[in-house]
Amino acid sequence: MSRQAPEGKNLVKRHALIVLVEHWAIAISGLALILTGLFELPIARRYFITEIPGLRWSGDYVFSLQLHYLFSVVFIAASLFHVVYHWFMGHRAILPQKGDLRESWEVIRSLFGKGEEPPFAKYLPEQRLAYAGIAVIIAGLIASGLVKTWKNLFAPDMDLWLVLWATWAHNLFFVLFVLAFVAHMAAILIKPNRPMIRAILTGWIRRDYAEHRHPLWIAEFALQKKPAVAVTEQDAPCQE
């Protein structure tokens, strides 16, 4: 992948296509899982959700479970793909680092006009921490969901304590997942973060913004032996 934008464009490549596909596969299936998971509670008919055009199916537990399974396939496969692919590619930029907690605090203070924002690498320290948090939540959802699916398919008389653990872990991680989603939306609405929305939609980010806010990242690939134009996805020092 070339990080250089077409001639004359003030842009730099932030995410490879594969990352965009992973992100949106997990995001869209995750939202669909929240919705179909909610419809596994007896709420749709009680609260007249079945009357909403296009949501008549919401009162059918078996159909919403079918959809829940369908989106789980995408969600689980994409999550595991993400972990395995980036692990083998040596991409570590989004993993939390020492000092992230302290640095996050500084960033939050700077948002309120207290002190200067420190220079960033590819990701903000709170992005790295949030990534670890959501990874734990997703891992919990997947593990507990797989136990529940196995029970539904093959072992309805599975040990009660295992079933209870899986069920309540799934319900608890569901709540945490919804909260994490709300926090994620709030974070991208914060003004200094907004230019990153373009990156997760198109892969490209404004070069002046990146140079100003992510100088450590820009410096990393500018320092490569090859000029930025020829930097390939695989060579880039600081991938996702």
């Binding site: 999550s79 595991l80 395995v84």
Partner: peptide, 10 residues
């Protein structure tokens, strides 16, 4: 398919 999905991703 859900039970097989981790393997698919892997």
């Amino acid at each position: 398919a859900v039970v097989a999905s981790p393997v698919i991703g892997l």
